[in-house]
Amino acid sequence: MSLVVTALLPRCLSRADAALYCGLTPEGFDAWVRRGIVPSPISGTQRWDRKAIDVALDRASGLESAQDEDDPFERWRAAHARTS
């Protein structure tokens, strides 16, 4: 019997891990957050949602339409903006 070990990529990422996930330095990641390229951390935490980052990067790269009003990320962004 062989043991197969797979890397588990957590959904919630620290600032450093989120930056690494995006291929950025932590300072570069902060700049992307300020510019709205990637979302802010989850409200009340210092953790970023990996799936929210993926959606934001898909949109920034043109893989997904920013005009979809039923978009879960846009709903999240609007709700987060009201609580920030």
Rank of each mutant, 00 (worst) to 15 (best):
S14A: 14
P72W: 06
E74P: 00
R75N: 13
P41T: 05
I42Y: 08
S84A: 12
D70T: 15
A18Q: 07
L57E: 00
V38W: 00
R50P: 02
P10I: 13
A81P: 07
F29W: 09
A19Q: 10
L63Y: 12
D49I: 00
R15Q: 04
E27F: 10
T25P: 04
E74G: 01
R59C: 11
S61Q: 15
L63V: 09
Q67H: 14
L63T: 11
L24G: 04
V55R: 09
P39Q: 01
T83Y: 08
E64L: 11
L8S: 13
F73T: 05
D30S: 14
Y21F: 14
A19K: 12
G44W: 02
A78C: 11
P72N: 03
R50K: 10
L8D: 08
F73P: 03
T25V: 03
R11H: 02
R50N: 04
A19N: 10
I53C: 03
R15K: 15
T45V: 11
L20C: 09
W48H: 08
L24S: 04
G28W: 07
C22Q: 00
D58A: 10
S43F: 11
R11K: 09
V5W: 05
D68G: 05
L3S: 14
S65I: 12
D58R: 05
A31P: 01
S43L: 09
M1R: 13
L3C: 07
S84V: 12
L9Y: 12
T45S: 15
F73W: 13
Q67W: 11
F73Y: 15
T25N: 03
S61R: 14
A66W: 08
R75Q: 15
G62V: 11
E74H: 02
G23Q: 00
P26A: 09
D17C: 03
R47Q: 11
E69F: 12
I53Q: 02
A56Q: 08
G44T: 05
D68V: 13
D68H: 10
T83S: 12
T45F: 04
R77F: 09
T6I: 06
R15E: 09
S40W: 13
Y21E: 13
W32L: 10
D58F: 04
D71V: 05
P26E: 11
D58P: 02
L8N: 09
L3V: 12
L24F: 03
T25A: 06
A66F: 07
I42A: 06
M1V: 14
G36L: 02
T45I: 08
L20G: 05
P26Y: 06
L13P: 05
V5D: 06
A60P: 01
W48K: 07
S2R: 10
E64Q: 10
E27M: 12
W48M: 01
A19L: 08
E69L: 15
S61T: 15
Y21H: 14
P26R: 07
A19C: 04
A52P: 00
L13G: 08
L13I: 06
A60K: 04
W48P: 07
D70S: 15
R50Y: 03
V5T: 07
V38G: 01
L57N: 00
E74W: 01
H80L: 11
L57K: 00
L9G: 11
S43E: 04
T6Q: 06
V33N: 07
R15C: 10
R75W: 14
V5A: 03
L24H: 08
P26L: 12
L57V: 00
A19I: 07
A81M: 07
A16L: 09
